[in-house]
Amino acid sequence: MLTDMQIVVMGGDARQLEIVRKLTELDAKLYLAGFEQLEQPFSGAVKEKLHDINFSHIDAIILPVPGTSLEGEVETIFSSEKIVLTEKILHQTPSHCTVYSGISNGYLDDIIKKSKRKLVNLFERDDVAIYNSIPTVEGTIMMAIQNTDITIHQSSIAVLGLGRVGMSVARSFSLLGAKVKVGARKSEHIARITEMGLQPFHLNDLRNEVKDIDICINTVPYPIVNAAVIAQMPSHTLIIDLASKPGGTDFRYAEKRGIKALLAPGLPGIVAPKTAGQILANVLSQLLREELESRKGK
């Protein structure tokens, strides 16, 4: 149980509702900032304006998956109010207060460092990323079907990157009958691709490997699908970029060439927000319980 824990949930989308539901069931006291348009009531959770919250008693702050903007703004679909996490707010919290976010950026890292608080990036955890790859794969399959006029079966697909998402995507499209090649850099990844029964190639050879593909699925968060690569693709190729914003694709050049390129970060929150929220809620409740037990043991 999380009895006596006081937590601020700042903004977000439908995934946050599953987090709120789980944490209130565990008897935490929640303050919801950026939720005034939410009609659904939660016992143990109160909607508050950010400036009305007494942060001196707050044990944890939960941000949405994208964290903050580079100006500190927190996105929310439940409010017209501008929600901004500042260094001043963090300084008002107890020294043990922990900030939980999906991902981080320079702004968030900077105010965390200056306030000497702890930041946990949930998407850096293997368990979260692996669980999250399931709705990501389903969303990618949906986008591939909606945006092509061919079947996935027997189509030629290049998956770029063999991280936790890339591995799940490559395996799933192969099981659907696609001819899947996977680009990677590390020798152990090349070996794993071979072991999976897929065709490996080194990302240095990317330009040569895209000349015959129907779909290119990128998971690498660097500008890897550049103009030189896109220039070698057939005109019917579909690019699905799953990397975090701004993605790894030159979208301007793709449009110029008439190649459809879709940036699709955060697919779990779009195609399966309930499941994606439950994944985050389960991990968060575990981390918060560990934090509470650690403090009580001191």
Results as ranks from 00 to 15, higher is better:
Met1Val: 13
Thr3Asp: 15
Met10Leu: 14
Leu17Tyr: 07
Val20Gln: 07
Leu23Pro: 14
Ala33Arg: 01
Glu36Pro: 11
Ser43Cys: 07
Glu48Trp: 11
His51Gly: 03
Phe55Cys: 10
Ile61Arg: 10
Ser69Lys: 06
Glu71Leu: 15
Gly72Asn: 07
Gly72Phe: 05
Glu73Gly: 02
Thr76Asp: 01
Ile77Leu: 00
Ser80Ala: 08
Ile83Ser: 02
Leu85Ala: 05
Leu85Glu: 06
Thr86Tyr: 10
Ile89Arg: 08
His91Phe: 13
Thr93Ala: 15
Thr98Leu: 12
Ser115Cys: 12
Val128Pro: 00
Thr136Ala: 10
Glu138Met: 11
Glu138Ala: 11
Thr151Met: 06
Gln154His: 12
Ser155Lys: 09
Ser156Asp: 12
Arg164Lys: 06
Arg164Tyr: 04
Ala170Thr: 06
Ser172Trp: 04
Lys179Leu: 05
Val182Ser: 08
Lys186Gly: 08
Glu188Pro: 04
Ile193Gln: 08
Asp205Phe: 07
Val210Asn: 01
Asp212Leu: 06
Ile215Tyr: 09
Cys216Glu: 02
Thr219Ile: 03
Asn226Phe: 03
Ala228Leu: 12
Ile230Val: 11
His236Gly: 02
Leu238Asn: 05
Ile239Asn: 02
Ala254His: 09
Glu255Ser: 13
Ile259Tyr: 11
Lys260Cys: 11
Leu263Gln: 08
Pro265Thr: 02
Pro268Gln: 01
Ala272His: 05
Val283Arg: 10
Leu284Lys: 08
Arg295Cys: 12
Gly297Ser: 14
